[in-house]
């Protein structure tokens, strides 16, 4: 893309995010505190990182961002309405120390669980959206995450809205054991029903997405997108390395690798995320036709 244009587009996005950031989600979780890129080590001013949507200006690394921040970047201003906010699941297995760990995760992130689900608009088109947040228990899926996602899918089906899910997850929530595994069945089945009823489901992989989330709803999109460099897999790289006893090739399980192997339609940089979604909605007959 023409760099001048790209630059202008980024600045536009920045303005949008800033505008929405203050007035839109009720609790905009602060992005991780960094001014040094965790991949290349380049130092950038925090303001500059915010402007670049937390993509390192030096190496292009897409830093993981919180669910509310992602929604602020994606949704139209003032259109955000959270669904099932504050929904939590009991410690069904009475796993020792789990409640305390949840409590400290809640304190640290301001989130009640690892997913935020919402109704909102993208380019004027009403949508249902779910965003997993890797800052909360590594975005792992337990009963609450599975239930919120399922309700979000059902909401989309009931209101005939397009469904967009951003995944970021270490997999199943270990502390909820087999009930976490059952959430894979619940969410995958919900998505399948929604799709059979004619619903449009856009699945957006972000870094990192592995385990039970990859092996359920995240891999079932009508359209599948991924952020550049995102780690996407079923088994984690360490487990695979231990199993096969050899080092893994460069770029293994990265978004680009998945495109090469036929599991992702397109890689979408964060700066193009919103426009891409608007375009896809339009291609499905939702939203305004372009003016030009």
């Amino acid at each position: 893309m023409n760099p001048i244009f790209a630059n202008r587009r980024e600045r536009l996005m920045e303005m949008k995010v800033r505008r929405k950031g203050v007035e839109q989600p009720r609790r905009l979780v602060a992005p991780p505190v960094f001014d040094k890129c965790s991949r290349c080590g380049a130092v950038a001013a925090k303001a500059e990182l915010a402007r670049s949507l937390y993509v390192c200006p030096n190496c292009g690394y897409h830093h993981p961002i919180g669910a509310y921040l992602r929604l602020a970047m994606v949704l139209d201003a003032k259109s955000f309405r959270e669904l099932n906010e504050g929904m939590v699941a009991p410690n069904a297995l009475q796993f020792p120390g789990y409640e305390e760990k949840l409590e400290s995760a809640r304190d640290a992130t301001g989130l009640s669980e690892a997913v935020v689900t919402a109704r909102g608009r993208i380019g004027g088109v009403p949508v249902a959206a779910a965003v997993l947040d890797s800052h909360f228990f590594m975005g792992s899926m337990g009963v609450a995450v599975g239930e919120k996602i399922t309700r979000c899918v059902e909401y989309a089906q009931r209101h005939r809205l397009p469904l967009i899910i951003f995944s970021a997850s270490g997999g199943a929530r270990m502390q909820e054991g087999i009930l976490s595994l059952m959430q894979m069945a619940k969410t995958a089945a919900a998505v399948r029903r929604f799709q059979e009823a004619g619903g449009l489901y856009i699945s957006f992989f972000t870094h990192p997405t592995t385990g039970g989330v990859t092996a359920s709803f995240a891999s079932l999109g009508d359209i599948t997108l991924a952020e550049p460099g995102a780690l996407i897999g079923f088994a984690g790289p360490r487990v695979i390395q231990q199993t096969i006893g050899q080092t893994l090739p460069e770029g293994f399980q990265r978004a680009e690798y998945l495109v090469e192997h036929g599991f992702v339609d397109q890689i979408v940089p964060r700066t193009a995320m919103r426009e891409t979604l608007i375009r896809l909605l339009r291609l499905h007959g939702k939203g305004e036709l372009p003016r030009e």
């Binding site: 089945a189 998505v191 029903r193 695979i240 199993t243 090739p249 192997h261």
Partner: peptide, 26 residues
Amino acid sequence: GAYPGLEAEAHGQGEAIASAIARMST
């Protein structure tokens, strides 16, 4: 469990499991 191998990942272990679950559900 499903095989955690390099080729299994390259061939879409996650997608295959997801699709089996989804297909079986209906």
